[in-house]
């Protein structure tokens, strides 16, 4: 967790009574949010997926978005902020179009990651955590990204771009700025482009009925096994 966020006005306090209707998230985002909420037995479980959705819309997690998420899952905006601020991928302050994450953990360190990060700082003209003046690139020092056979590992918007040298890093940045890799690397916030096909949830009534039938069958099998065992005992006696 890279330092506390600076104080911001924060989301509006929750009003008494019914939660306010989402006012910041677009109609499409809200529709997708409701689909996600429906997947979980409890709405709050969708809180983090909804934060990802809001980041897809805005590029980062705006206070207004957190207020909307709070209303959608039935918690206070403070609870959304309190949860979101725990996680590295949820950005409660603006980030650039491209979040460039350089891993410097042990395997990458052995592969020259510290030198790469130093080069990245110089070449981009920002310190770790900073965003370039044009708003294109935010540089981040990451913990292990699980791509250790391609060290030093770099991700852009959580897409792997393979092991980087200082030279290839500069080419990568140039490509990001011209949009040459836009198909493969969507802008920051868009995480999963494959949507769940709708209408897949097994009906609750059906599940309950099946479970009851299975439990009955299980009990019957156990009884049968016990009876067979008793029979064997009698037979041997």
């Amino acid at each position: 967790m890279s330092g506390p966020p600076s104080p911001s006005p924060g989301p509006a306090p929750r009003r008494a009574g019914a939660p306010p209707a989402p006012s910041h998230l677009s109609a499409e985002t809200v529709e997708r949010a409701r689909e996600l909420i429906a997947l979980y037995p409890e709405a709050r479980s969708a809180l983090i997926p909804l934060c990802h959705l809001a980041q897809e819309q805005d590029g980062w997690l705006r206070p207004e978005a957190m207020a909307d998420i709070a209303a959608l899952v039935g918690v206070t905006p403070a609870e959304v902020y309190g949860t979101a601020s725990f996680y590295d991928m949820l950005h409660t302050e603006p980030v650039g179009t491209h979040l460039v994450s350089v891993c410097t953990n042990i395997a990458c360190l052995l592969g020259g990651a510290a030198e790469l990060l130093e080069h990245a700082e110089t070449s981009l003209g920002v310190n770790v955590g900073g965003t370039t003046v044009d708003g294109a690139i935010t540089l981040e020092e990451a913990e292990c990204l699980a791509d250790c056979d391609r060290a030093p590992c770099v991700q852009v918007n959580h897409r792997y771009v393979g092991a980087q040298t200082p030279e290839s890093f500069d080419r990568l940045v140039a490509d990001l700025r011209t949009g040459a890799r836009a198909d493969e690397i969507p802008r920051h916030g868009t995480l999963v482009r494959v949507r769940r096909s709708v209408g897949l949830r097994a009906g609750r009534d059906r599940v309950v009925a099946e479970r009851a039938a299975m439990a009955a069958a299980q009990a019957a099998r156990a009884e049968e096994a016990a009876a067979a065992a008793a029979g064997r005992k009698e037979g041997s006696a």
């Binding site: 479980s45 983090i48 990802h52 996680y87 590295d88 096909s197 897949l200 059906r206 599940v207």
Partner: peptide, 27 residues
Amino acid sequence: YAHGAVGEDIFGSGFSVDVVLHPGAGA
């Protein structure tokens, strides 16, 4: 799901199951 391996009554077995993919957020 389209293949009938997930969802209601998978492969005609009478067993239904739903699988939800949940993304973490970096911790």
